[in-house]
């Protein structure tokens, strides 16, 4: 058979797989139109986009080289923006990544199917609450005058804390609320991976006399390791991509010190001040860091665990 393939020209191969290829065309078009074509817009980071010049202006505006990058690297906000962006995601990863795994392991140990479903559904639900509503809830709960958290603090003799106006509280609030909102939903893929483990293996462990802890440690965790690594690398790829909406809705001038991230800075520069080229340069800088992180993470993973995306 392979002998036969070698003799076929690429035209014959195309003809042979024509239906398969036709099926992939919409996907290719989608990526071309919505991913690769807009990607050429990064040229704006190297020119001075003439406002009002439309799509053509993206490519025809005056070339300024690395002017915007130099400006950003010279900005007093560079360090703070990178630090805040990185730390918000880093903490989210450190605290947010293990929770769905632990939760998935725990929930799959529940014997009653009905109880398991109830737990899973109730933990998915917060994920479907809009970010705006979640931020509204956070603001209300943490209000120094009448917020439930401060009322509880008052009851145990602690003075009200103005959570939303103190820079040191922004990161914990962001990370904890984010974890609460997404751990149930994020656990789905781990639950599926755990469910995919062959019952034979469980039985074998059982025969060997393994207790529950040993089953988890020696069977469940190794079995879902590729899934964990895959998701970890994908999460690392968004290490510098903080969810703009949530930061924007939660931050105020009092907490810029810890809350102002690259995405909000790009928004202020690009949308609010019409400095599109500068904002594009800052965004591109962010994407380059993301790319480097995911590339390095993939390399490390390949070396250490033999598991990698590419």
């Amino acid at each position: 058979m392979s002998q036969g393939n070698k003799k076929k020209s690429w035209k014959q191969l195309l003809y042979r797989d024509r239906f398969l290829l036709m099926m992939i065309i919409p996907v290719v078009i989608y990526y071309l139109v919505f991913c690769y074509l807009p990607m050429t817009g990064i040229v704006m980071a190297f020119n001075q986009y003439q406002v009002g010049s439309g799509f053509a202006g993206v490519y025809t505006s005056k070339w300024v080289g690395f002017k915007w990058f130099k400006q950003f690297f010279g900005s007093i906000y560079l360090g703070r923006l990178v630090r805040n962006t990185f730390l918000l995601q880093f903490y989210s990863l450190i605290f947010g990544f293990p929770i769905p795994i632990l939760f998935a392991i725990a929930v799959t140990q529940v014997r009653s199917k009905r109880a398991r479903k109830a737990i899973q559904v109730s933990t998915y639900l917060p994920y479907f609450i809009s970010t705006v509503v979640v931020c509204g809830m956070i603001n209300n709960f943490l209000s120094p005058s009448g917020g439930i958290i401060n009322q509880l603090l008052n009851k145990i003799g602690i003075e009200s804390i103005n959570f939303m106006n103190l820079p040191q509280w922004f990161r914990p609030i962001y990370v904890i609320s984010g974890s609460w909102q997404s751990f149930g939903f994020n656990s789905i893929i781990f639950v599926a991976a755990i469910m995919g483990i062959s019952p034979d293996l469980y039985e074998a462990m059982d025969v060997d006399g393994a207790n529950r802890r040993q089953v988890i440690w020696h069977l469940v965790l190794p079995s879902i390791r590729p899934t964990i690594i895959l998701l970890l690398i994908m999460s690392l790829g968004t290490m510098m991509s903080v969810g703009f909406e949530k930061v924007y809705l939660l931050y105020n001038t009092a907490v810029y010190e810890t809350a102002d991230v690259i995405q909000t800075y790009v928004y202020r520069q690009g949308i609010q001040s019409s400095n599109y080229s500068y904002a594009t340069a800052v965004g591109l800088f962010n994407s380059v860091i993301n790319f480097v992180i995911v590339f390095v993470a993939n390399k490390i993973s390949r070396k250490v665990t033999d598991t990698a995306i590419w």
Binding site: S75, T253, S273, N275
Partner: peptide
């Protein structure tokens, strides 16, 4: 103006709040 004003405004806003609240 486009290049500098936004950063200046940001700086003033956050420092003003920080000084008033004692941060």
């Amino acid at each position: 103006i486009n290049m500098y004003l936004e950063d200046i405004q940001t700086n003033v806003d956050e420092n003003t709040t920080a000084f008033i609240t004692g941060t």
